[in-house]
Simulated scan of single mutants.
Amino acid sequence: MDNNLPTPVDEECLDCYLDRAIQTSTCDGTLRAVGRFTSHNRSHHHLLKGARGQSSHCDCEYRMNTKPVTTKAHRDMEGRIACQGVPRGSFNSCSNWNLETKTV
């Protein structure tokens, strides 16, 4: 177990977890937060990696390859994104994340 990473919350989406993990620990160039999330949710990391593209080599890059947060995102008292929930083990993002295609 990596003590520097927060523990995933049941029904928390990967995007919200990565946002939280990136804010509380430094990037070490690996997918350790993604691995912690998939391990907690008993998900298959290789399927999840394929869903976001094979180019992600670290948690920060993986997070950047997803949808931007919406302007209506729910936030907690400290201003952090508060996950709106997904079924445990789901690869879907919660409603905090823009469902439209990301434009460059």
Rank of each mutant, 00 (worst) to 15 (best):
M1V: 02
M1P: 01
M1K: 09
M1Q: 05
D2Q: 05
N4R: 12
N4S: 12
N4H: 03
L5Q: 04
P6M: 05
P6T: 02
P6R: 01
T7W: 03
P8C: 02
P8W: 00
P8H: 01
D10V: 04
D10M: 03
D10I: 04
E12N: 07
E12Q: 15
E12R: 03
C13M: 03
L14A: 02
L14G: 02
L14V: 05
L14Y: 01
L14C: 01
D15N: 06
C16P: 09
C16R: 00
C16Q: 03
L18F: 01
A21F: 02
I22E: 04
I22D: 07
Q23P: 01
D28L: 04
D28P: 00
D28T: 08
G29A: 10
T30K: 09
T30A: 09
L31T: 14
R32E: 11
R32S: 12
A33S: 15
V34N: 06
G35R: 14
F37E: 10
F37K: 05
T38P: 03
T38A: 14
H40K: 08
R42A: 13
H45T: 13
H45D: 07
H46D: 11
L48G: 02
L48V: 12
L48S: 05
L48Q: 10
A51L: 14
R52G: 12
R52E: 08
G53V: 04
Q54H: 11
Q54F: 08
S55N: 14
C58A: 13
D59K: 12
D59V: 04
C60I: 11
E61F: 00
E61M: 06
R63C: 07
R63E: 07
N65F: 03
N65L: 12
T66Q: 15
P68R: 12
P68G: 11
P68C: 08
V69P: 13
V69S: 07
V69G: 07
T70S: 14
T70V: 15
T71W: 02
K72I: 10
K72N: 15
K72C: 06
K72L: 15
A73S: 15
H74S: 15
H74V: 15
R75W: 04
D76A: 09
M77S: 14
M77D: 10
E78N: 11
E78P: 01
R80P: 04
I81L: 13
A82H: 09
C83Y: 00
Q84S: 06
Q84K: 14
Q84L: 13
V86Y: 00
G89C: 02
G89P: 02
G89L: 00
G89F: 00
G89H: 01
S90H: 06
F91S: 12
F91C: 10
N92I: 04
S93I: 02
S93A: 14
S93T: 11
C94V: 03
C94H: 03
S95I: 09
S95K: 13
S95A: 14
S95N: 13
N96V: 06
N96A: 04
N98I: 01
N98T: 03
N98L: 08
L99V: 11
L99R: 13
E100G: 12
T101C: 08
T101R: 08
T101P: 11
K102R: 15
V104Y: 05
V104I: 07
V104A: 10
